[in-house]
Simulated scan of single mutants.
Amino acid sequence: MSADLGTRPRHYARQIVALRSKEERRAALENVPAEWRDLVRTHVEIAWNHQKGGKA
């Protein structure tokens, strides 16, 4: 995952949600810039819960 200037928190989240394994998702989250990591984690959790039909 590259940290180019055009990548925004939701883009990172979309890329992470598309990964197959939990280990891949955790590793990808570690590559997110530190200042966005919490926000991206929140986006991923919301997307994950939405896909499962659950509530955040």
Results as ranks from 00 to 15, higher is better:
residue 1 M to D: 05
residue 1 M to L: 13
residue 2 S to H: 08
residue 3 A to C: 09
residue 3 A to P: 00
residue 3 A to W: 01
residue 3 A to S: 12
residue 4 D to N: 15
residue 4 D to A: 09
residue 5 L to Q: 10
residue 6 G to M: 11
residue 6 G to S: 12
residue 8 R to H: 11
residue 8 R to A: 08
residue 9 P to Q: 06
residue 11 H to Q: 14
residue 12 Y to R: 01
residue 12 Y to K: 05
residue 12 Y to G: 04
residue 12 Y to C: 02
residue 15 Q to N: 10
residue 15 Q to I: 06
residue 15 Q to H: 08
residue 16 I to E: 03
residue 16 I to A: 03
residue 16 I to C: 06
residue 16 I to G: 04
residue 17 V to N: 07
residue 18 A to M: 09
residue 18 A to Q: 12
residue 19 L to H: 04
residue 19 L to E: 03
residue 19 L to M: 12
residue 19 L to V: 01
residue 20 R to D: 15
residue 20 R to W: 06
residue 20 R to C: 03
residue 21 S to L: 04
residue 21 S to I: 05
residue 22 K to Y: 09
residue 23 E to H: 06
residue 23 E to K: 12
residue 24 E to M: 10
residue 25 R to H: 05
residue 25 R to T: 00
residue 25 R to C: 03
residue 25 R to P: 03
residue 26 R to Y: 02
residue 27 A to V: 07
residue 27 A to L: 11
residue 28 A to P: 01
residue 30 E to P: 00
residue 31 N to Q: 15
residue 31 N to V: 00
residue 32 V to H: 02
residue 32 V to I: 07
residue 32 V to T: 03
residue 34 A to R: 06
residue 34 A to C: 01
residue 34 A to W: 00
residue 34 A to N: 04
residue 35 E to N: 06
residue 35 E to H: 09
residue 35 E to G: 01
residue 36 W to F: 15
residue 36 W to Q: 11
residue 36 W to H: 14
residue 37 R to T: 02
residue 37 R to L: 04
residue 38 D to L: 08
residue 38 D to Y: 03
residue 41 R to A: 14
residue 41 R to F: 05
residue 41 R to S: 11
residue 41 R to H: 05
residue 41 R to N: 09
residue 43 H to L: 13
residue 44 V to I: 11
residue 45 E to G: 04
residue 46 I to R: 15
residue 47 A to H: 05
residue 48 W to G: 02
residue 48 W to N: 12
residue 48 W to T: 15
residue 49 N to Y: 10
residue 50 H to E: 15
residue 50 H to V: 09
residue 50 H to P: 00
residue 52 K to T: 04
residue 52 K to I: 01
residue 53 G to S: 08
residue 54 G to E: 15
residue 54 G to W: 15
residue 54 G to P: 00
residue 55 K to I: 13
residue 55 K to L: 12
residue 55 K to M: 12
residue 56 A to L: 15
